[in-house]
Write a protein that binds this DNA or RNA. Structure first.
Lengths: 144, 144
DNA sequence: GTTGGTGCAAAGGATTTGCAACTTG
DNA sequence: CAAGTTGCAAATCCTTTGCACCAAC
């Protein structure tokens, strides 16, 4: 989901309550520049004087992923806010292995091609996830 | 890697010892029909009267992934034996959401296309992961 | 015989569960 | 006020580390 308001809309529409913890987690995800773990989120909130139980954060992240308001970044470990509108079943990322910078995109051509390959195996595809791992423009050419 | 023998070759060639635990883990991976966790592997071997320490299994799986003899399936959680030859940097799977059946494939066209999109974002891609989720031929049409 | 590999114990995280208390609509 | 959420305690599971012993080459 692209912005804070539409994320809230999704929650409302699907009958979930708009609670203080959920708002806080949404905010942190929206501001994060890289994938964050449940404990990362807890720490950020701690620094703002807000306390959330880690179990609560886990449950909220589970819900957000279910609703596609957030995604779990598999190669990096951590969660990010979904930055696309409703692109059902297509969640693709570029992840920088150095700084964790992340860019989400959807691409129909890629999905079509994957569907074709899947069919050859007898699979019927419902969801596509992919992650390209490499270096973002900032981290290219840097030597550490 | 495609078969047991060539996996062993890779180990030898790269100067790693061919130990009993490594052979056992290779066997279990080769026979598994779905991604298996380190503890899954330990259980299977237990049933055959073989005991391996779980730490050992973790280390062996790390090594196998390093050598591309196995892959970690991110969305499913677990490891599978690599069924392809050396396809550096391209790890794609179809996973059945019902039974966990898994099919590995590589596809240069997909990688090229992803690279192009990445370039538009200023990213330089080094590795591609993708996991398609859906139903395998066996699970299609079944009602649970 | 070396070197690399394994087993064990233990520590440290990550994640989940059950239930009582609280909030939101 | 009722249903859905949260907080807490604790259990469980996952993963890693350090070091002594052992096995493969």
């Amino acid at each position: 989901m692209f912005d804070f308001q539409s994320s809230i809309q999704v929650l409302r529409t699907k009958g979930y309550k708009l609670t203080r913890p959920r708002k806080r987690v949404l905010e942190v995800l929206a501001q994060a520049q890289k994938p964050v773990s449940p404990y990362d989120i807890q720490k950020v909130l701690q620094q703002r004087g807000e306390h959330l139980n880690h179990v609560t954060i886990y449950r909220i992240l589970d819900l957000f992923c279910l609703l596609n308001l957030a995604h779990k970044v598999l190669s990096f470990g951590g969660f990010v806010k979904c930055t696309l509108g409703e692109e059902e079943g297509c969640h693709r990322f570029m992840v920088c292995r150095q700084c964790g910078a992340l860019r989400e995109f959807a691409d129909k051509a890629l999905c079509d091609e994957e569907n074709e390959i899947a069919q050859d195996f007898g699979f019927r595809t419902e969801q596509h996830f992919s992650e390209g791992f490499g270096l973002c423009s900032n981290c290219q050419g840097q030597i550490f």
